[in-house]
């Protein structure tokens, strides 16, 4: 579904990604782990061109992504993204957050967009928050709304950029539960995370990144239990 070839990204003289090759397949849940500064968030952000790659190419559903606004806007509609800091729109109610995209981009009627939104809110367990504003929600609720907002565009793939890193510990579970359900329903997902338990349980494939490269990859359970590369061993010994 997403083919990444020779992906490089530099900020000035700083090389963040030094040549990433991988493929995300339909229905696959790929978890990306690694120390901070390893380039895992940048990698994710390159997939929908929030960061424009310095070199290499991303092919999404057979189409090479180029840095042209009109094409990017169309492609991004099919790639949902969830951010560490939620980035809900604070001047809009939950309902407006969820219906903005479908109404403005898919010309969906207000009634239809709201009906879809209610279904999504139900699936993340926040049906009663439709008229609330983001400021009145807890972190876990915000992130579940953010997931619902991305899903409202009916994307083919969901990108998660450390979705639980900004949450109080007691709220991590509710967000991971929503993500787990999403994975069980067959959504293609790329998840940058520090939640090793979740990675092991839900991930089909794990990428370990360090220093701008994918150092090791494989079935999460195997990589986490029996890492081959010294950098992976070192990292896991610190976090597990």
């Amino acid at each position: 579904m997403i083919k990444v070839q020779g992906l490089r990204k530099s900020f000035g003289k700083l090389d963040i990604l030094k040549g990433i090759d991988t493929e995300i397949r339909q229905g696959e849940v790929v978890v990306v782990i690694g120390p901070s500064g390893s380039g895992k968030s940048t990698f994710l952000r390159c997939l929908n061109f929030l960061e424009v790659p310095t070199a290499g190419e991303i092919v999404f559903e057979g189409q090479k992504i180029v840095n042209k606004q009109s094409e990017l806007n169309a492609i991004r509609q099919k790639m949902g993204m969830v951010f560490q800091h939620f980035n809900l729109f604070p001047h809009m109610s939950v309902m407006e957050n969820l219906t903005l995209g479908p109404r403005k981009l898919k010309n969906m009627s207000k009634d239809k967009a709201e009906a879809t939104a209610v279904d999504l809110l139900r699936s993340v367990g926040l049906e009663d928050k439709r008229n609330a504003y983001p400021d009145s929600l807890s972190g876990g609720q915000k992130q579940r709304i953010a997931i619902a907002r991305a899903l409202a565009m009916q994307p083919d793939v969901m990108l998660f950029d450390e979705p639980t890193s900004a949450l109080d510990p007691e709220m991590v579970g509710e967000v991971l539960d929503v993500m787990k359900k999403l994975a069980q329903n067959g959504m293609t997902m790329v998840i940058v995370t520090h939640e090793m338990g979740f990675a092991r349980e839900v991930g089909d494939r794990l990428l370990f990144m360090d220093g701008g490269n994918i150092v090791e990859e494989g079935v999460p359970r195997e990589v986490l239990q029996n890492p081959q590369h010294p950098r992976t061993q070192d990292f896991l010994s610190k976090v597990l």
């Binding site: 169309a74 991004r76 790639m79 949902g80 980035n87 729109f89 903005l100 995209g101 403005k104």
Partner: peptide, 25 residues
């Protein structure tokens, strides 16, 4: 910046992100 990024990640154009998300705030 996350506000613009969230808007752009939904597929909104630069102009729409400015009009619906950034300017009202």
């Amino acid at each position: 910046k996350g506000q613009t990024e969230a808007a752009r990640s939904l597929g909104l154009s630069k102009g729409m992100a400015m009009r619906y998300i950034v300017l009202p705030q």
